[in-house]
Amino acid sequence: MTDHRAQVDQLLADYRRSREQLATMHRDLAAISESASSDDGLITAEVGGRGVLTGLVIADEAYERYRPAELAAQIVRLTGAATVKAFAGAGEVLAPALPSGTDPQALLLGTADLGAKDIAAEVPDVDESFEDQNWLAEADWPRAR
């Protein structure tokens, strides 16, 4: 009976270590914050460890310098650049907990076990012209009597 008790104690100790490692990993991921700024310093985008935009600073001068479409494009570009940095940091946090050979970046992107062929989107065969299309079948309409 003593052997079983020792095994149970060892399993509980392993579980507690794993749980603490997981909690530490979650705290480390939550602490990740990366930013990217425009060359002129007028726009700064900040993202968290999952690439979600958490902050955006736009200087008043940016509204004078950029047209709305240009400003939007800058925000999208900077958010993407900050996300790349955040994912690199998140990958470093995750790597020790993953099985060997697992790419943390692919895991974060949701493509961990997918190949290029699996990811490629099928191009539907679509007739682009909708002219002269009858979308209602005549049989669906009641006829006047």
Rank of each mutant, 00 (worst) to 15 (best):
A97L: 02
F87E: 11
A73R: 08
G89F: 06
P104S: 02
T102H: 07
P68T: 04
A59E: 14
E64C: 00
D28V: 00
D113C: 00
A73Q: 08
P96E: 02
D40L: 04
P142W: 11
D14N: 09
T79Q: 12
A139K: 13
N134W: 03
I43C: 14
A86G: 05
G49F: 12
L136K: 06
P104H: 07
K85S: 07
R50G: 07
E70Q: 13
S38K: 14
I58K: 12
A139R: 15
A106P: 10
Q7R: 14
A137N: 09
L108Y: 03
S129G: 07
V126P: 10
V57Y: 14
P142E: 07
D9W: 09
D140H: 08
M25F: 01
Q7K: 15
A23C: 04
A86H: 13
R17C: 00
F87D: 03
A13I: 04
A95Y: 00
A97P: 02
S33H: 12
E70P: 02
S35R: 14
S100M: 02
V8C: 00
A121C: 12
L22N: 09
I32M: 13
A112C: 04
L42P: 13
T2I: 07
D60Y: 05
L11N: 07
A81G: 01
A30Y: 15
F130P: 04
T44M: 06
D132M: 11
P68D: 03
L78Q: 06
D14P: 05
D103C: 00
Y66A: 02
I119C: 13
P142V: 12
E61F: 00
V8Q: 11
G55E: 14
A137Y: 05
Y63F: 10
H26D: 06
I32C: 11
E64A: 01
A97D: 02
T54Q: 11
T79S: 14
L136D: 05
A82P: 09
G110Y: 06
G110A: 01
T44K: 15
P99D: 02
L56E: 09
D3C: 02
T83D: 08
V84T: 10
A139Y: 04
R67N: 10
G80K: 14
R27S: 13
L108K: 07
D60Q: 14
L78C: 07
G89W: 12
D14I: 03
T111Y: 07
A144V: 13
A139N: 14
W135M: 02
D9Y: 07
V52G: 11
Y66K: 06
A95S: 03
L114F: 09
R77V: 02
M25G: 00
R65L: 04
A72W: 09
A69S: 09
E46S: 12
F87C: 00
